[in-house]
Simulated assay, not measured.
Amino acid sequence: MDISKYGKVRPMRSTTEATWDTNNATQASLIHAPAAQDITAWYKYALISLNVVLLVGLVLNLVTAIAYVKSPLLSRGKPVHQLIFNMTIGDGITCLASQPFVLFLYTDAGQRYIVGRKFQCIASMVGMLISFDSAMMALILITCERLFAIHSPLQHMHRVTKKSCRVAILIAWTIILAKNVSLFFMNKWQSGVPCVGITVMTEAYVSYVYNLGLYTMLGSVALLNILLSIVVIVAKRKAGTMSASETMTKSVRRQIKSTRSEMKIVKIVFLAVGVLFLTWIPHNTLANVAQSYVSKQQAPPFGIVVGWHMTRSLAVLGTIADPLIYFLQNSGCHSAVLSLFGRSEAQKQSIYSLDSQTISKAISVVSVESSLHVIDGFCVLYKVTGQMH
């Protein structure tokens, strides 16, 4: 097949001049330049925008992760901080793991290096896929935790522990790794073809692993957040009704206070999910439009291809937005980051990051000690009175 009728393919080095099958030849027009226009002129802009986002995201997530480790949030904070820390680690991995794929796609040196190297090509794609899956899986975990916290705050206090959160995180990462490492066994890699998904992934992998996993996780994130919204609305109405009651007991007051405290982190979840969908939808939509042309043996319009490449940086913008959301919306994270830079006001706020169980234990210890002192006093008084009589 003469692939020139589907678009002008950018001349590669002599090592890339391989015989492509019909499918790969058609798909090549999606990666390179349709309608005799050179898409590679846009590569430097795509590379710059991606590197700026990934670099800033790496710095912000690194600062956040160090602040968490050096603060009492992980050791004495609420279990939900384990999940927020996991999201931070996932975003940091995204910034690092996406870089090889970006260099192999958008730089001449990267294209020359990756030709004929199967393991490096597939490994770069696996890293990119893991980075995106980790963000969605982290949102699924924290949304489930918030659902339980708002719906059943008292049960959540006893059943959701730091240990159970760590186990959930370990299981999630095991699923992510198993899903994406399977690409090493389900690929159609050929020496000489571009190192991108449509020329490396088999149809079985795309249909039953990539798309199935992708849309299952996206659907789960959307559905769980709809349920979370409903639970939040019901909880707020219930709390409002209880607050208006004149015969409100201490346990009811404690429940209302606990519910309001848990809702503060719900805002973080909603903002992070909103960023995910707003930044991911444009790139995915353009990719689907371009793929629809390819599936009909047609070259996609040049503007679609340009938009597809330029929105790659938008798809990873969450790596910058997420740590900023934590810092601005969570007092514990805010205090931890300020404390990392030696701000004294952070020390005054650090007490708010302690979980209710830790505070309850401290109060209980003080109460027991006070009671013992009172009992001792009565005993002494009794002995003295007896001697007087």
Rank of each mutant, 00 (worst) to 15 (best):
residue 180 N to Y: 05
residue 189 W to S: 05
residue 177 L to V: 10
residue 192 G to I: 00
residue 173 W to Q: 12
residue 188 K to T: 07
residue 195 C to W: 00
residue 176 I to C: 09
residue 206 V to D: 07
residue 178 A to S: 11
residue 206 V to H: 11
residue 204 A to W: 14
residue 190 Q to A: 15
residue 184 F to C: 06
residue 180 N to M: 04
residue 202 T to E: 01
residue 202 T to W: 01
residue 202 T to H: 00
residue 193 V to R: 07
residue 196 V to D: 13
residue 197 G to C: 06
residue 199 T to F: 00
residue 196 V to R: 12
residue 203 E to D: 07
residue 188 K to G: 05
residue 184 F to W: 14
residue 190 Q to L: 14
residue 188 K to L: 07
residue 179 K to F: 09
residue 203 E to C: 01
residue 192 G to L: 01
residue 181 V to G: 14
residue 187 N to L: 02
residue 183 L to S: 04
residue 203 E to P: 06
residue 192 G to T: 02
residue 191 S to M: 13
residue 197 G to F: 03
residue 189 W to D: 04
residue 176 I to H: 13
residue 182 S to C: 08
residue 180 N to G: 08
residue 175 I to D: 09
residue 176 I to L: 12
residue 181 V to L: 11
residue 180 N to H: 06
residue 191 S to K: 12
residue 189 W to F: 07
residue 175 I to C: 12
residue 203 E to V: 04
residue 174 T to I: 14
residue 199 T to P: 00
residue 182 S to E: 09
residue 200 V to N: 08
residue 174 T to A: 12
residue 193 V to D: 11
residue 205 Y to I: 03
residue 200 V to A: 09
residue 181 V to S: 09
residue 190 Q to S: 09
residue 176 I to R: 11
residue 182 S to F: 10
residue 202 T to F: 03
residue 179 K to T: 12
residue 203 E to A: 05
residue 178 A to P: 07
residue 193 V to H: 06
residue 202 T to K: 00
residue 194 P to K: 01
residue 181 V to A: 13
residue 188 K to H: 10
residue 192 G to H: 01
residue 202 T to L: 01
residue 195 C to H: 00
residue 205 Y to E: 03
residue 197 G to E: 04
residue 195 C to P: 01
residue 193 V to S: 12
residue 193 V to P: 05
residue 204 A to L: 11
residue 176 I to M: 14
residue 205 Y to V: 00
residue 205 Y to Q: 04
residue 199 T to V: 02
residue 176 I to P: 10
residue 195 C to N: 02
residue 205 Y to S: 05
residue 198 I to L: 13
residue 193 V to N: 11
residue 173 W to D: 13
residue 178 A to M: 05
residue 196 V to M: 11
residue 189 W to R: 03
residue 205 Y to C: 07
residue 191 S to T: 11
residue 178 A to K: 07
residue 182 S to G: 07
residue 194 P to R: 05
residue 186 M to T: 13
residue 193 V to I: 10
residue 178 A to L: 13
residue 197 G to W: 03
residue 191 S to W: 15
residue 206 V to L: 07
residue 185 F to T: 06
residue 183 L to M: 10
residue 188 K to C: 10
residue 200 V to C: 09
residue 174 T to Q: 10
residue 182 S to V: 08
residue 201 M to P: 02
residue 203 E to I: 04
residue 185 F to R: 11
residue 201 M to L: 07
residue 173 W to S: 13
residue 182 S to M: 10
residue 204 A to Q: 07
residue 177 L to H: 15
residue 174 T to G: 15
residue 199 T to L: 03
residue 186 M to C: 08
residue 203 E to Y: 00
residue 204 A to M: 06
residue 190 Q to I: 05
residue 201 M to G: 02
residue 195 C to D: 02
residue 195 C to K: 02
residue 193 V to F: 06
residue 174 T to V: 15
residue 206 V to S: 05
residue 202 T to I: 00
residue 201 M to R: 06
residue 183 L to W: 05
residue 176 I to F: 10
residue 203 E to R: 05
residue 174 T to Y: 14
residue 187 N to R: 00
residue 187 N to A: 01
residue 190 Q to E: 15
residue 188 K to P: 06
residue 175 I to Q: 14
residue 183 L to N: 02
residue 186 M to Q: 11
residue 204 A to F: 08
residue 174 T to K: 13
residue 187 N to I: 02
residue 197 G to L: 03
residue 189 W to M: 02
residue 193 V to Y: 04
residue 192 G to R: 01
residue 174 T to M: 14
residue 173 W to H: 14
residue 189 W to C: 02
residue 191 S to F: 15
residue 198 I to V: 13
residue 176 I to D: 08
residue 185 F to Y: 10
residue 187 N to K: 04
residue 196 V to P: 05
